[in-house]
Nucleic acid binder design. Structure first.
Length: 565
RNA sequence: GGCCCCAUCGUCUAGCCUGGUCCAGGACGCUAGGUUUUCAUCCUAGAAACCGGGGUUCGAAUCCCCGUGGGGUCACCA
């Protein structure tokens, strides 16, 4: 890490209108890492100037997601992350919610009007819409520049009438110097007199952002390339206000499988496609909270989105998994925060090489905070490859120290799969959890593999394919083995996994059959399927009584019917 | 459509700035074998790319131009 430099400040400034998106997480991560390599501080600001769409719940959720990822902010809203406290205001530059900073914006805005660099405008939305339509009809780009002939009169009129305040765009070209893209030039003909204060008195994003970056001493602005067209506006505003221009870095976007900006619509798209493919009939399969008309409209219109819970319910009805897009969804999906950080850092950024000259792909936060460099950010957009993420996550889950795995997995279960904690004893989990770890790609995957221990023996559904292959085949060889096993296991007393492992092996050895010929019929009996954790641990988790009940039950349920093949 | 950005294996990328060491390297995925009591792992091998066209140069993935393709953005949203 670099020598501490108190003058360096990076910031992440989300707007609290939804969950933290994976792209936002990457931006935050880069800002955090940059502050680290430069020895500066990382600041978090909540951009809630849109009163209607912002919510404190959303702001809170974003804070929690960032803390979960370990993207700790030095300054910003205070947050108790359990083992550490984040945020605070040591330099007294807060508050960090823009909705609480209106006086500051107001001061600068008045100064701008007084300097003749801003003016009240009284156009109604309908009038503006008409101007745009006309411009479009004439194949012109709509550029608003209706400056008042008499500014003083306009200011006077503004005292009594609803209005917005617009910025007087500069007459010169604006050149944005960007650390990633180089110099980007914007001609004055494309700069319009954009709105800097809305009719409700709130500043627009552009104005609040520029004022706050100055007031908070932000030196480096790292954000997605979708903001590139905002940069000339911000630079022009800074000049008019007499502010510094921070260092800009517009990082490439994260794409989805379709090659477009990854967004929350992803999930709607996946569900829509599945619904169309399967010819889903809402009439035949009602979905809670979703009425037919809404569904039909949503099905037709690609831009339409369902409410999150409607979407979840529909996905369940369709029997599909929705693709994760927000950090919370990846968390619920059982991904590790360190893996997510590692993976998203690789989207657009290339770390220094390994000593053998190959690409360095796996690294932790400590590495990132010392190796991050804006010069190593690429210019082209990157597709989000879920398979590669899964591969990374698998490595990290299976490579975890078993005791650590158990602690973290159970922590995840407590939140997302409480049955595992409620229904299994500590002793059962002590056997099952380590058994499941080497097989699991995610915590959710691990939890799924524990499922057999959660159901009652009567609820077991014996998979016909598994029954046929492992019990009925070869003149019911599997059923025969199972019958013998019932006796052998019934007489067996030590139900530790180790002893059971030996017992099963001895059983197979005595009969000179492969272990598979024993384990598979047992799996079918114990779980109803051909897949389970290693057989000894499966038996041990269930316990002797339950295991024997399941075997007995299977023998009855799956016995060959007289007269049928 | 205007403006802006981008362009190496299917995907993420190295190399490009400072032309030759690149018949282009790594990773995920894919294919084929192998290990394994199931699934998942794991091991070995393999296929797989410099968008097209012009220049500049002894020599271009690397520099320049044009074309094509992709993306972003055009709100009293951020």
């Amino acid at each position: 890490m670099a020598v501490p430099d108190a003058s360096i400040v990076t910031r992440f400034a989300p707007s609290p209108t939804g969950n933290l998106h994976i792209g936002g997480a990457r931006t935050a991560l880069f800002c955090w890492a940059l502050a680290g390599t430069l020895g500066g501080r990382f600041l978090l600001r909540i951009e809630d100037t849109d009163a209607a769409r912002s919510s404190e719940d959303s702001a809170r959720a974003i804070l929690e997601d960032l803390a979960w990822l370990g993207i700790d902010w030095d300054e910003g809203p205070s947050f108790d992350a359990g083992d550490r406290t984040l945020g605070g205001d040591p330099r007294a530059v807060g508050p960090f919610h823009q909705s609480h900073r209106r006086d500051l914006y107001h001061q600068h805005l008045e100064a701008l009007i007084a300097a003749g660099r801003a003016y009240p405008a009284f156009d109604t939305p309908a009038e503006l819409g008409a101007m745009r339509t006309q411009a479009e009809a004439e194949k012109r780009t709509f550029i608003y520049r209706n400056r008042p002939a008499d500014p003083a009169a306009a200011v006077e009129r503004a005292k009594a009438e609803p209005h917005v305040v617009r910025f007087v765009a500069p007459d010169d070209a604006v050149v944005v110097v960007d650390e990633v893209l180089g110099e980007v030039r914007f001609e004055p003909a494309q700069l319009d007199d954009f709105v800097i204060r809305k009719a409700d008195g709130m500043p627009t994003y552009h104005f609040a952002c520029v004022v706050d970056d100055e007031a908070m001493g932000v030196t480096h602005v790292v954000r997605g390339q979708e903001h590139l067209m905002n940069a000339p506006r911000h630079v022009a505003l800074q000049r008019a206000l007499g502010f510094r221009t921070p260092t800009y870095a517009h990082v490439p976007l994260i794409f989805n499988d379709q090659g477009a900006k990854m967004s929350k619509r992803e999930r709607d798209g996946a569900a829509r496609q599945a619904a169309k493919q399967s010819g889903f009939d809402l009439g035949a399969t009602p979905v809670a909270g979703l009425d037919a008309e809404v569904f039909a409209r949503w099905l037709k219109d690609k831009k339409r989105q369902l409410e999150p819970d409607q979407l979840e319910a529909l996905a369940t009805a369709l029997g599909i998994e929705l693709p994760e897009v927000s950090v919370g969804e990846f968390r619920a999906g059982g991904y590790l925060p360190e893996t997510i950080n590692n993976f998203i850092a690789l989207l657009g950024f290339t770390p220094s090489k390994l000593d053998d000259g190959s690409d360095r792909e796996r690294f932790d936060m400590a590495f990132l905070v010392s190796d991050f460099d804006l010069a190593r950010i690429g210019k082209s957009n990157a597709r989000f490859d879920r398979k590669k993420l899964l591969s990374f996550n698998t490595d990290d889950v299976t490579g975890m120290e078993p005791s650590v795995f158990r602690e973290r997995f159970e922590g995840w279960c407590a939140r997302f799969m409480p049955e595992i904690m409620d229904r299994l004893t500590d002793a059962q989990r002590a056997v099952l959890v380590p058994a499941v770890q080497p097989q699991s790609k995610t915590f959710r995957d691990a939890a799924d593999r524990c499922g057999f221990a959660l159901i009652a023996s009567g609820e077991i559904e014996h998979d016909p394919k598994a029954v046929k292959k492992w019990l009925a085949k070869n003149d019911n060889a599997g059923l025969g083995v199972l019958g013998e096993l019932k006796g052998t296991l019934g007489a067996h007393t030590d139900w530790s996994a180790g002893a059971l492992h030996d017992a099963v092996e001895r059983f197979a050895g005595d009969r000179e059959i492969g272990l598979g010929q024993v384990a598979q019929p047992l799996r079918v009996a114990l779980t109803g399927t051909a897949v389970s954790p290693p057989i000894a641990e499966t038996l041990a988790t269930l316990g002797k009584d339950e295991a024997l009940v399941r075997i007995g039950l299977c023998l009855v349920v799956c016995k060959p019917r007289v007269g049928s093949a």
